[in-house]
Simulated scan of single mutants.
Amino acid sequence: MNVQERLLYRDEQLSITVTETPGIPAVTLSGEVDATNSVALAGALASCRRGRHVVVDTSRLTFIDVSGLRVLAMPALEPSQRWIRLHNVTPYQQRLLHLMGWSYQPTEPHPAP
């Protein structure tokens, strides 16, 4: 299997990498997401969308604010239209999503690269 990891974005707070495998891209977020980089996060995720979904691993995030959660949860869209699938969501992140009233459905594990 041909697996490639590449950097999509990096600033002083956040690093976004994507693992390209046949099928669904797997994106890993590391660091902090806030109002200073949430627009870049949205652009990076949109740039790697190839099909119906993009899997986003949030386990390495140390902080995320409402602007970042809005990018990941896509609350303005109906659940069936949301193309971001969250993976490894921490209890803290789950609690924030719940407090915001944005439903969260765990994804099934995707194959490891």
Rank of each mutant, 00 (worst) to 15 (best):
N2M: 06
N2W: 03
V3T: 14
Q4M: 13
E5I: 02
L7M: 14
L8C: 11
E12D: 14
E12M: 00
Q13R: 15
Q13F: 12
L14M: 13
S15I: 02
P22R: 09
P25Y: 11
T28K: 12
L29N: 09
S30Q: 15
S30P: 00
G31C: 13
V33R: 12
S38E: 10
A40D: 13
L41V: 05
L41A: 04
G43H: 12
A46P: 00
A46G: 03
S47D: 09
C48Q: 12
R50C: 06
R50G: 14
G51S: 13
R52T: 02
R52N: 01
H53S: 04
V54A: 05
V55G: 01
V55I: 11
V55T: 04
V55N: 03
T58M: 07
T58P: 01
R60Y: 03
L61N: 11
L61P: 11
F63H: 13
F63T: 03
V66H: 08
V66Q: 05
G68I: 11
R70H: 11
V71P: 10
L72R: 09
E78C: 03
R82V: 12
R82A: 12
W83V: 03
N88E: 10
V89D: 09
T90E: 04
P91T: 07
P91S: 03
P91C: 07
P91H: 05
Q93P: 00
Q93F: 04
R95W: 07
H98I: 04
H98L: 14
H98Q: 15
G101T: 10
Y104E: 00
Q105V: 15
Q105I: 15
P106E: 05
T107M: 15
E108L: 14
E108W: 09
H110M: 14
P111N: 08
A112C: 05
A112M: 10
P113S: 01
P113N: 02
